[in-house]
Design a protein around this nucleic acid. Sequence first.
DNA 1: TTGTAAGCGTTATCAG
DNA 2: CTGATAACGCTTACAA
Lengths: 330, 330
Amino acid sequence: MPINMGDIARLANVSKPTVSRVLNNSPLVNEETRERVLRVARENGYAINRNAQKLRQVRNDTVAVVLDFGSHRAGRIADPFIFELLAGVSESLSIRNQDLLLSPPSLTDVQSHLDLISSRVADGFIFLGQGEREPMLRDLARAGTPFVVWGGVDPKAPYCSVGSDNRLGGQLAGELFVQRGAKRWLFVGNIRHSEIRMRFDGLRAVAARHADVSVDHLDVEHMAYAPTYQQMGTWLRDNPPPDAVFAFSDTAAIAIVSAFRELGLEAPNDYSLCGYNNIPPAADFTPALTTIEQETHLAGAILVEKLMQILDGGKPKSSMLPTRLIVRQT
Amino acid sequence: MPINMGDIARLANVSKPTVSRVLNNSPLVNEETRERVLRVARENGYAINRNAQKLRQVRNDTVAVVLDFGSHRAGRIADPFIFELLAGVSESLSIRNQDLLLSPPSLTDVQSHLDLISSRVADGFIFLGQGEREPMLRDLARAGTPFVVWGGVDPKAPYCSVGSDNRLGGQLAGELFVQRGAKRWLFVGNIRHSEIRMRFDGLRAVAARHADVSVDHLDVEHMAYAPTYQQMGTWLRDNPPPDAVFAFSDTAAIAIVSAFRELGLEAPNDYSLCGYNNIPPAADFTPALTTIEQETHLAGAILVEKLMQILDGGKPKSSMLPTRLIVRQT
DNA sequence: TTGTAAGCGTTATCAG
DNA sequence: CTGATAACGCTTACAA
């Protein structure tokens, strides 16, 4: 019952290799033959057996994508950020006719990753977010496994990573605050995440150039709406209100607006506010949020591009994505 | 260089089938032999070639999961809902040793789905959210493709679906509104999504039992924060404010709070408000959101379970998950 | 309990 | 431009 390449060959009066050539767009085939084969294949609803194909070919044309469900589920990170990243990767892979295997949660140690490669399931990995697996990634790199990582970009890391230029993001926010004449800045975020710390560093670098500017830091461990709202509220009760706030995400910025509002303070009159990520609601929120844009869509394409380079034997460098300030009301 | 089953067989002084039996946990193997083979395999870092394996076996042990990036990306749906669903499915599949192939965005029509099955890439599909592809799913069911769907549960549909009891969700919201003495209800959502329409139906069923209650409908095509906020605002300018609102998601409920606030109206004093999904921020929002909870984690397990039944030749029935009202401030 | 032989459906090689 | 033949690495008979 399951129709195969031999059947198509017979029905089209050609040999199997010719059918194979047609399906692989080989230029060696006579136009007439090609059309006949394609017609027969179509008429019989034939689809090539990809397992047989992969058995013969060197490449698998499959990429394993590793999400960190552990830290993203339960809404701990409310920005639709990782989801967009996944969408971008999915699209880029599909353009290159690569299958996307979503890594199982059981994939935790080096060996299980190596096995996935040697069992010829995937050609390489894309890690979305390095989270707490830095050490494992180093081992994986040492073992010569092909992979790329979305996350904080450390030029000294032994693997290729792609991420937003977080330091620049912090500087852009700082320069905005200077321009607005703000003096008492507050940075809100968990600086144990290296991406976040780099933003803080960028912000402080700008502050250091202005003697009359002070920078405070509100540590928010879980990066979501609710804890941010609560901690910001507490902070505002215990401290004089800052006149500029740089938040780790737009969702956090929205929480911060609410917390200030309880004191009757509104951006931009009473304080400047800058978020991060430029999530779609940011533009429509009242007040419209000033924010830093990371080009997530581009990110997927670049990650895929770099991985393909590695698979082709290249050694692409880590790189940072265009990062820009989008000034709106706040 | 790539080591294969024949090599392991030779090194362990057995035949290939014996190695195969060991790796597939066949009970037919002598314990001593088993251990020897496993040791040799481990020592040589051998991992079975899954493509060759799949070529021989009837089943592929791969499930294609279809996300609706089209309507979820660009933050159009900011609820971390689908993400959690995906995590649950991923985990359940991994427990059953099934690979998860994330469907490419190019997979839109019936034929491309059929091709994925006949090219032996996947055994079946799990659709997360039926969105507007109801007609396509009917065709797919007619073609005998194995799949299950997360979404609205219509017992008359020709395929197996699993979802929240949307109708009950609507009724629960309606009963709450009755209890609060609300008379002018508003339903906000895109009823071309069947899940959403069923909630509307449930709400109206309750309304129909009360002569003095009217139900209006605000159609929001793109189910995200920004459009909801804007359209709700417009609606409030053109119509007398409702005294009860049932929103298609908690994110939408948050947008609705903002829109009402611009008119100086606050829940629960000026209107009752019920969301959907019970996302984590809902409890901490001000005011704390009343909402309907869907058990997403369970959902993943059930979807996988049903698909496996179908693949084993069974005909599982559609089923609805426990759904309950969580009454908070609004 | 183990081994031998055959074949899964494709592509690589080489000859024509 | 096309075809014959031999792999790819595994599992399924069937035999011992």
